[in-house]
Design a protein around this nucleic acid. Structure first.
Length: 314
DNA sequence: TCTGGTCAAGGTGGT
DNA sequence: ACCACCTTGACCAGA
């Protein structure tokens, strides 16, 4: 079990998801922002290594407009060296990486144009993970999509479209149960038809589920991940007190997290904390899990010769 | 320099 | 048909 947080580290004075307006798109601007985002990603990775955080969701905004027609720039070639370097850092410390394209990525839309744009967006995510040189355990998680008034047809369309997606996307793609449209049971049904692994969202399941316990749900989800996919990934959050059901908490609810750790035994997985205060909750979760035999932390920084110690950080 | 309206993309659910 | 919400900060035009 590794523990992680999504996209942003609030303790650092850098943002790895900086973007700009489409209207002000230029190659110069793109290069500047991507350079910034990669530098900040490196700082997040080093922070995580230093703090025992083994799992990170990389922001979809690392390369703004990457899947938009306006972007004709070969960013993969231009940033090949830094991408490779970050990838080596990730692999050396056995960090787990995921990405989560946003809600506009809908492969089951009846609109062929929306599917095409979503496919392009997924290719970008795969390009970034490939560019980092990461193994197939680095996943891209999406939701099933919309219902469009006909669930069965919408699920059928997902299955059809999945077969048409590029292999280099498909081998990284996983689907996640959501809190409005598609509960775990639907995801498992889609898995049975396609083989796509199912990423279990504990909080969504509590809102839109059939009452299956966490333990029983994990027993169903675990076999959907093949060995090459790595450990199953999970999303965990808890309810923001007093807010509309479904709102993510500001801080880790330690007691709830410990109940989750208890209930999830003996299954092993990597858990992503979808909680607003990001790395602070990850640190609290690490502390809450410190006696859990499943917990693994990044391999500590190997000792370095003094003259090379400063180089990689510059 | 400051401020607030606005930002690529879609779908759901309420009125 | 239309709007708020999801989620979120920060970009950037205009004062």
């Amino acid at each position: 079990m590794r523990i992680g947080y999504p996209c942003i580290n609030r303790s650092l004075d850098c943002q790895g998801d900086r973007t700009f307006r489409l209207k002000s798109y230029s190659e110069g601007r793109l290069v500047e922002v991507v350079g910034n985002n990669l530098a900040c990603l490196e700082r997040m990775l080093r922070y995580n290594i230093g703090h025992g955080i083994g799992f990170l969701r990389v922001s979809s905004d690392v390369v703004p407009f990457a899947s938009h027609p306006v972007c004709a720039f070969d960013w993969q070639a231009h940033f090949q060296a830094p991408l490779r370097r970050l990838g080596r850092l990730i692999r050396r410390h056995r960090l787990r990486i995921s990405m989560h394209p946003d809600q506009f990525t809908l492969i089951n839309s009846p609109d062929a144009g929306i599917f095409a744009r979503s496919h392009a967006e997924l290719r970008y995510h795969a390009d970034l993970l490939d560019g980092l040189g990461l193994g197939l355990d680095a996943k891209i998680q999406i939701h099933v999509g919309g219902v469009y008034g006909e669930r069965d047809a919408a699920i059928g369309r997902f299955i059809e479209r999945y077969a048409r997606i590029d292999e280099r996307v498909r081998r990284r793609l996983v689907i996640e149960n959501d809190e409005r449209c598609y509960p775990l049971a639907d995801c498992l049904r889609i898995h049975a038809a396609t083989g796509v692994p199912v990423l279990f969202d504990v909080f969504h399941h509590a809102i839109l589920g059939d009452g299956t316990t966490v333990g029983a749900a994990l027993a169903q989800v675990a076999p959907t991940w093949r060995p090459a996919d790595g450990l199953p990934m999970l999303d965990y959050s808890s309810q923001k007190p007093g807010a509309r059901p479904g709102m993510h908490a500001e801080h880790l609810d330690r007691a709830d997290f410990q109940r989750f750790l208890q209930a999830s035994r003996p299954h092993d997985f990597d858990v992503m904390l979808e909680i607003k205060d990001k790395e602070r909750s990850a640190l609290a979760a690490l502390d809450a899990a410190r006696r859990d035999p499943r917990l693994v932390c990044p391999v500590p920084q190997p000792p370095r010769r003094p003259e090379s110690a400063g180089k990689e950080r510059s």
